[in-house]
Amino acid sequence: MSRSLEALAKATEQRRKQAESAVEKALRQARASQQPVSVASIARAAGVSTDFIYRHPTLRPQVEDLRRSRRNATPTDAAHDPRLPSCCQRPGPSAHPATGNRPSKTP
């Protein structure tokens, strides 16, 4: 292999490793936050293309696993925060779905 090809291969490998490190850093930051996760959001945070993540054999599953875990997680949002005024809270499970009114307890 010629020197110029070796240099090109070395530079390509270095860019790939930098991109992988950037995606891994973006994944760590996403795990620490409670923001929604997508391939596009991780790619944007890492400064890489979505194609890079979609074609990567180990990074794509990590992003998808995190996205799924966020989607399936029990909501810990402010909807049931007792510090919020009642007008801002979601009704509990026993409330009427349309009005949010609880059934009366009088016979």
Rank of each mutant, 00 (worst) to 15 (best):
L8W: 14
R60P: 05
S4L: 13
P97I: 00
R44Q: 13
F52T: 06
R67T: 07
R60Y: 13
P61H: 10
P91M: 07
R15N: 11
I53L: 04
S33C: 06
P103A: 03
F52L: 06
H56E: 06
S38C: 04
E64N: 15
H56Y: 00
E24G: 02
Q35I: 00
G47E: 04
V39P: 00
S94D: 13
K10P: 01
E24V: 04
E24T: 14
S86C: 02
K105R: 05
A11L: 08
P82S: 05
C87N: 09
P57R: 12
A22Y: 08
S38I: 01
S33G: 04
G100M: 07
R67P: 01
A73C: 08
E64K: 13
G100H: 09
Y54A: 14
A30H: 08
Q89G: 09
L5T: 07
L84Q: 10
L66C: 09
V23L: 09
A45L: 02
S86N: 10
A78N: 05
P93S: 14
Q34I: 04
A11W: 15
Q62L: 10
R16Q: 09
P61C: 00
Q34E: 09
P75H: 15
S49F: 03
A98F: 07
A40I: 03
V39W: 05
E64P: 06
A30Q: 01
A22P: 01
C87M: 08
R16I: 08
R15I: 03
A22F: 04
V39C: 09
R16F: 02
S21E: 10
Q18T: 13
R68N: 12
V37K: 02
P93H: 14
D65S: 10
A79P: 07
P85C: 08
T76N: 15
L66D: 05
L84F: 09
R90Y: 09
V63H: 01
R55H: 06
Q29P: 02
T50R: 12
Q34V: 13
Q89H: 06
A26S: 05
R15V: 07
S49R: 13
R60Q: 07
A11E: 15
A32V: 03
S86P: 08
P97G: 00
T74R: 09
E64V: 03
A95V: 11
M1P: 09
S33R: 13
R60K: 04
S21I: 11
S69R: 12
T106S: 07
